[in-house]
Every structure is written in C-alpha cells, then in structure tokens.
Design a protein around this nucleic acid. Sequence first.
DNA 1: ATAGGCCTGGAC
DNA 2: GTCCAGGCCTAT
Length: 263
Amino acid sequence: MPEGPEIRRVSDALNQTIAGRPLTDVWFAFDHLQAYRPRLLGAEVLRIEPRGKALLTHFSSGLTLYSHNQLYGRWVTARPGELPPSARTPRVRLETAAATAVLYSASDIELWPSADIESHPFLQRIGPDVLSDGLDAQTVLARLRQPDFARRRLGALLLDQAFLAGLGNYLRAEILWSARLSPERRPAHLPTEALAALAGAIVDVPRLSYATRGAIEKVQHHDAAFEFHVFKREGDACTRCGTTIRRIADASRPLYFCPVCQA
DNA sequence: ATAGGCCTGGAC
DNA sequence: GTCCAGGCCTAT
C-alpha cells in the first residue's frame, strides 16, 4: 500500500490485532528468514512502527522485521488459524491467539537485530515521517528553507524521501494543488505566504488522507471521504476554477495539476 | 536531473 | 500477451 497514510492505516490495524501477544506460529517464504523461526516462536509482538513507507515489527526476542510494500505488498489480517483467500503470494505469516497477519507479495523483507535497525540503509536515508506527531508547519517550513532542499523543483522535492518520508505520487499532486503551486516552483524563490501555504499543505493533506481512511480505502470501499482534486483526474474540470486538469511526466512519474490555479 | 531496472499485480 | 503503477535504487 503505497503512501504514508495507507501504510499508517495498516500499521494501526496490525497493532490492534496482533500486537501485545506472543507468536503462536510464524512463517516466512524465504529460507534464510525461516531459519529465525525458533527465535521468534513464543516471542511477543511488541508493536508495529511505520517509518515513511516502511514498517518495523518489533519482537520481544530482540528481532525486528523490516518490510516495504513497494507498489504491490499487502498486509491482511484474519481470525487465528485462518488464511485469507488471495491470489497473491504469501511471504510472511504471523500468528497469535488473537489473529493472523499475512504479508502478501512484498519482496523487500528483512530481519534485523532490533538494536541495529536504525542503521538500516533505508532508515538512514529518509527524513522525518510526514505523519509523525511532532511534525508541524514550523518544522516543515524550516526544512523547506534548508539550502539543499530550497533549490529543488517542488515536483521532485516532494517525492524525495530524504526530504520527508511518506509522501508519494498522489500526495505531491494534491499538496501542490492545495497550495496552488506549480511543480516548477522552488522553495527558495517563493514569497513567504506561498511558502507558508506549502508548509501547511504538507502537514494537512496527508493527515486528511489518513483521517479519511487513506486513498486505498476509497478504491476498496467507495465511501472514503478523502477526495482527489487532481490525481488521476486528467480531463476533469478543476473543482476550484473549472480549468481542465492536465497530466504530465515529472520526475519520471505521472503528475496531475491545474494549469491555471497552480502557478 | 534523468533514464533504466527491479519486482509484482492489475487493467487492457 | 502488453503496458502501467500510489516505489525505490543505481548508473549515467
């Protein structure tokens, strides 16, 4: 599940179902991980921690499961003993007395000593999680003003996990629309009010998505309140000014925007 | 900054 | 089968 809000939803669900209990069974599709089964059986699932788009599952036996879903991985929970029917490839199964959690399809799965997990290359590289509690507009504003970030085009900057972890292709489009900014703009050249609007959108838009169940839920349940104003809406009328939404390639990814009210 | 590759699933 | 994708890494 792609971006920060969706990852955090998954993390919430796993914390509510399998955390706080000992593992009654554990299974990995990869032999080099399955070898750790004896060290995990009976260990407690302490908590599941989102870090940008990665998830850390901490166990009481001193191991941490690092997983990254890329575009295709997916965690599913089910009643204990049951395996959710899926055409996908199961890669990890965690079982407690309360629930089963299965990770499908993901290819980016590792077990680390919990004490060393912060030295994981991905965690070393990424910036603060955009959805973390302490992240406010002031913090984001200060980060936007750091010279290395301030010079970048917004279209590319917002995708860079080293700037803020958890933003992705739909959030960058919705943030830029919300702040009324073109992807060509650069923080260093923005007037103060525009910079403040950008910082505000970076804080608010992901939180709105998370609060309204995440974009993926919209596809699955058709009742999520989070609305795309531009993402995948090429050809639609801009909800703000009526102009036709356009799609271009930006940083090798599709980017949707309103050519009139985003300047 | 950009292209290409990797991995997997889904839409066509 | 082909192409694309809400991601990320490496090479240029």
